[in-house]
Each structure stands twice: as structure tokens, then as C-alpha cells.
Amino acid sequence: MSESPETPFEPVESKENDTFSTETPVTGKSKMTAAWSSDEGESEGVAAVASLPQGQVFEQNYQPWNGTLNPRWMRNWAILRHHVLGIFRKGHRPWGIPTRLFIFFVILASCTDIALALLASLVGSTELYDMFGVNRNNLYGHVLGFWPRNILYFPVVAALLVGGMISEDRAHGTSALYFSRPISRFDYASMKFLSIAIILFLIIDGTLALYYFSEVLVMGRGWSWIIDTFPMFLGAFLCGILLSFTYTSIGLALSSISRGRFFPAIGLIAILMGTKTMAAIINGLFDKSTLYVISPYDSVAHVCQAIMGIDSSYGELSWTWSLASVIIINGIALYLLATRVSTLEVTRE
């Protein structure tokens, strides 16, 4: 306890070399004179029964930490690489073998249009090239074709990835460990989001870039062709980002309210397929395409049809409604995710 108000804090020993190791000599003295000192029996033993409801606040001296904390991006990078590198390497986040195999399969399957376009160039078939070569419709189809990409490939990959992303951290207590570090809630949520989005982005837009540039190289396309088609490629690239973002935000929101991987994975697929099926049934029965706005896939696809400048397959529905729907769906999902993380519900075991 301090002796006078003027000198509440006594000088303390330097903290230099005060790290612990097996060789460290035991100093026997605390650098902090505590509320109850760390001396072992040297000081007079004092105790108090806490008769007052507010107890007692003690004064003491201590040496503040004046070290430097490495930049925030370094900590965030550690989270990001822990998740993304786990796909390829051991010693990071362990993704299951089925997840890794399925990602490998989807990457291969997403390259079928590359193989067929190359085959068309080899055999010199213009019909085959029209079907699989780079053009406005095929670039759109590479990202947003419903069968098989957006029914079998991308939603299933997203479901496998988001399934345990937050929920398993919560079940295993890992999220509690994250928050015992100088990691802010925003950093945690954003790095989790980025990890999934980057993997999805690499699959969707990575194979898209491979598709486009392999045509440039193999078919010997010149600058004029590139100048003609590059805006279309960028449009499809943007669509890939929008699709990755939307699947990730819905999936992570579901993961943040669960303790297991099953519910978020099935929930994501159910939302994507259920809403599309319902909208398709209503459209088939009543010839009304308005309900497609409730389907995340259809809303993104409709917006991307407008971006790519291809014919709309959503009848009388304006693409601006779909754009509003994409914003609202992502907004709700991100709000749910942010709320769960900000209240630290994701750390409750």
C-alpha cells in the first residue's frame, strides 16, 4: 500500500532480462508489490472478511509493460494462413480428407470447359468451339451455370468449408483461445470470412482465369481479341467474387449460430436449393418470376446476367430487384454473424 498520496508508486526494479527459462535465476521478489505481496511468509499475514459489499481496492506499484506489439496485420495474417494453408499442409487447421478431395475434384471438374475448348482447337471443330470456347455466355456459365456448378460444385464446397468454420471452433473452445489474444472481434470475424471467401474465390475465379488465359496462349489470341473480351472476363471475375461473397456470408452466419458442422452445411444447401426450387415451382405454376428474389443464387445470377450483358432468364423481374435482394441477403447474413461475434456467443461452449 502506498504511504502518501504524493508518492503512490514506488520505484521498481527493471524488467530487463526478466523472462523465464529453466536457467533463469529465481529473484524471489515481485516487480509488482501486490495487493497482497508475493513474498512467501516474510510479510505479516493479513486478511479480512469482506463485510462490505464492494470489498476493497488495493493500491500497489508495478512496472508497466513498454514493449512493442507487432502490427495488427501480422496477427490477422496468422489467422488467415492457419485456415487457408490447412487445405494443403499439415500443422494448420485440419480440413477433413473428404473436403480436400472434393475441392480437388471441383477444381478438376471446373476445368472441363478448358479441356473441351482445347480439344475443339485441336480437332478444328467450330461447333465444339462455339459450345466451349471463350465467349460471353460461356464465361458467365463458368461461374454461374446452374448445372452442375451451382448445384453440385460450389454450394457443396461452400457447405463443407463453412460447416465447422466457427461452430467447431466454438465446440472445441478454439474461439475462446483466439479471444485470449489481442484479437479484436472484427479481426476474428473478418479473417474467418476472408479465409472461406479466398478458398471459394480461388476455385471459382482461379479456374475462370485459367480458362481465359489458356485460350489466349493456346489459340494464339492477339491484343485485339484480348481488348474485345477482357471486359467480359472482368465481368465474370466480378460475378465470381459476388458469388463467393454471398455463399460465404450465408454459410458463416449459419456456422456462428451452431455448435456442429452438420447444421450450417445442410442449412446452406437447403437455403440455396430450397429457395430456388420454390421460386421455380411458383414460376412454373403461375408464370411469376418475382419470387426468384428470395433465392440467393438466382439473385446473384440475375445481377450477373445484367453485368455480362446476356439475355435474362428471369422474365419480367427487373435485375435491380435482384441487386437489392443480394444486398439485403448479404446484409442480414453479415448482421447475424456480426451480432453473434460481437456478443461473443461464439465462445460459449
Binding site: 495487493a35 481496492v57 508497466p64 495488427r72 472481434r185 448482421y335 451480432t339
Partner: peptide, 28 residues
Amino acid sequence: MPDLDQHGHAETKEWTPDVKAPVVMLDR
């Protein structure tokens, strides 16, 4: 609105502890 930015300085680089404060303090 969710309190994601924690109403404080998420950027911890500039953080320095209060020298007058105890390491742990709980007040009522």
C-alpha cells in the same frame, strides 16, 4: 448495431497500459 469494433482501439499498436492502475481491477 453489433459492437464489432469494440468501441475502442482495435488497433492495438498504440496501446500502453495505465501505470497508475492495478494489473487486475474489479470495481463493484
